[in-house]
Amino acid sequence: MTIAAPVNHDTIVLERLYDASPARVFEAFADPEARMRWGAPSSNTGLVYDEADFRVGGLDISRCGPKSNLIYRVETRYHDIVPEQRIISTEIVSEGVNRLSFSLITVQIEAAREGTKLTLTDQIAAFGGASMIEGSRAGFNAALDNLHAEFART
């Protein structure tokens, strides 16, 4: 009998206000080139999309990790997309044959007086300890902070 790794669950909710229109915020998620610019959480981290299919039912396949060794594979399946309002997807993160986490991710985009309010909710099930949850929290926090610079580009 194989003993399964323990499962840790958490819900991560992050909010940001951006000085950009809802259309521009939505486009930053829809465009894989833009996601590669702002999605890597640090200058030492790489993010590459091998496949990008941003549509309901579409699948993105990306690799990430240290720039010299993109060891993590991420499969993102899109389940609901309402332009300028929301994106709902599932995400599987693996390292080799080992699955590290499964997530249901909801991105809500709302017009606000200051521009756009974005709320990202990551309902995550991680295997083998809480470090994957903390990594997801830190990664999304840094990426959403990077999104400010994306809007300052033009």
Rank of each mutant, 00 (worst) to 15 (best):
S89Y: 12
Y49L: 07
Y49F: 15
I88Y: 08
A28Q: 08
S21M: 10
F26G: 00
R55H: 04
A40E: 08
D31N: 06
V97M: 09
Q108N: 14
W38A: 00
F26C: 01
L47Y: 00
S42H: 10
R24T: 11
A52G: 12
I81C: 14
H79F: 13
C64H: 14
E91Q: 05
R55M: 04
D19L: 08
V107H: 07
R77F: 09
E27F: 15
T76V: 13
I88P: 02
L70N: 05
S68W: 11
V74W: 06
L100I: 11
T106L: 12
S43C: 03
E95M: 15
W38M: 01
I61H: 04
G96R: 02
R37Y: 12
S94N: 14
A23W: 05
F54D: 13
A30Q: 10
P22M: 04
I105A: 13
L100H: 14
Y72A: 05
Y72D: 03
A23G: 02
F54L: 09
R86H: 14
D31F: 04
V93S: 01
S43E: 00
S101F: 07
E27L: 09
D50A: 14
E27C: 09
H79I: 07
N69M: 08
R35I: 01
R35Q: 06
D80N: 13
D19I: 13
I71F: 00
L17W: 06
A28M: 08
E75F: 03
S89I: 05
S101P: 12
N69A: 08
V56Y: 04
L100S: 11
E110C: 06
R63T: 00
V93W: 00
G46A: 08
E27T: 07
N69Q: 10
S103D: 00
S101E: 10
I92L: 14
Y78Q: 02
L17A: 05
R37G: 12
S21N: 05
R24L: 05
T76N: 12
W38N: 00
T90P: 06
R24H: 10
F26I: 01
T90C: 07
Y18M: 07
S43H: 02
V107P: 03
S42K: 10
T90S: 14
E75Q: 02
Y78N: 00
G57T: 14
P22G: 03
S103M: 00
S68F: 12
R99I: 03
L47S: 02
C64G: 15
H79K: 13
D31L: 02
A52V: 10
R24Q: 13
H79R: 11
V82T: 15
E75R: 02
V56H: 08
I61A: 06
D80Q: 15
E110I: 07
H79P: 03
Q85L: 09
R63Y: 01
E110H: 08
G46E: 03
D53Y: 11
V74M: 15
Q85I: 14
L70P: 04
P83R: 14
I87H: 01
N98L: 15
L17I: 09
